[in-house]
């Protein structure tokens, strides 16, 4: 069959797997594994007054998710903006591929690479823990994956809206606010959660026990909304110049 809707996906994955894009991601799993291992070692020797193994597990997973979301978001902004703004990409819209895949294919490529690193990160964290946790890990991991989806979706929106650096700066502010707003000492008006994603709230709730369906829904809606807005702007940008 002529034409293909995976063209942009494959091009983007090839670009993303180059060393300069992958190397920052690959620092995350060993860094976190070391943190978890060191924490367990210190706790075993009475240096750190750490809580239960279950809580340490959850904290480690959330640390991983946070770091990864931050890096994935910044890199997404730079990658999306660089790709969609490039001359080769614009001219490649003349190839026999669906124009829509120029948006979704690139988005899915970034999400695939970020998900791969997320799996590596979580695997490294769990491997570094001294024993099995009694917490329902699947649930926690599922919740911790949401910030990664949100980061890539927001990166897609900002990547089409503005320059890579500007988008990365705005994204960093937003994700830091999103996490900070969930900390016990910081309270923000409820309506602001529609602008700032309740990532921190999801994390603090998850620390006690997996819960926070409302936050899950809000983050997913947030991601979907920005993703669709990005797609609409992509459609407009593809015909304007």
């Amino acid at each position: 069959m002529k034409g293909s809707n995976t063209y942009y996906y494959r091009e983007s994955v090839s670009l993303l797997l180059r060393t300069k894009w992958v190397s920052p991601y690959l620092l995350i799993p060993p860094m976190l594994a070391f943190m978890v291992y060191a924490e367990a070692f210190l706790a075993a020797h009475g240096v750190a007054g750490i809580s239960t193994l279950g809580q340490r597990t959850v904290l480690a997973i959330w640390n991983g998710a946070f770091l990864l979301a931050l890096i994935a978001g910044i890199k997404s902004c730079l990658f999306f903006s660089g790709t969609w703004g490039a001359g080769w990409f614009r001219n490649s819209l003349a190839l026999p591929v669906s124009r829509s895949s120029g948006y979704w294919g690139v988005y899915l490529a970034v999400l695939t690479v970020s998900t791969g690193v997320f799996i590596l990160t979580i695997g490294a964290v769990i491997a570094a823990l001294p024993g099995p946790s009694r917490f329902p890990l699947a649930h926690i991991i599922g919740e911790a994956y949401l910030p990664v989806i949100w980061a890539v979706s927001m990166g897609a929106f900002l990547g089409i809206l503005t320059s890579g650096t500007g988008g990365a700066f705005f994204f960093t502010s937003l994700i830091l606010l999103g996490f900070a707003a969930g900390l016990p000492l910081i309270s923000i008006p409820g309506w602001l959660h529609f602008v700032i994603p309740p990532l921190g709230r999801l994390m603090t709730l998850g620390m006690r026990y997996p819960q926070g369906l409302y936050q899950v829904v809000v983050i997913l809606v947030h991601s979907a909304l920005f993703l669709v807005m990005g797609r609409l702007m992509f459609g407009i940008a593809a015909r304007r110049k």
Partner: peptide, 18 residues
């Protein structure tokens, strides 16, 4: 129409990184 048409742009349209 794009399935049966080849466009060759000025400056080759090659991606520099692949």
């Amino acid at each position: 129409s794009r399935q049966e048409t080849v466009f060759v742009f000025q400056n080759w349209n090659f991606l520099p990184d692949l």
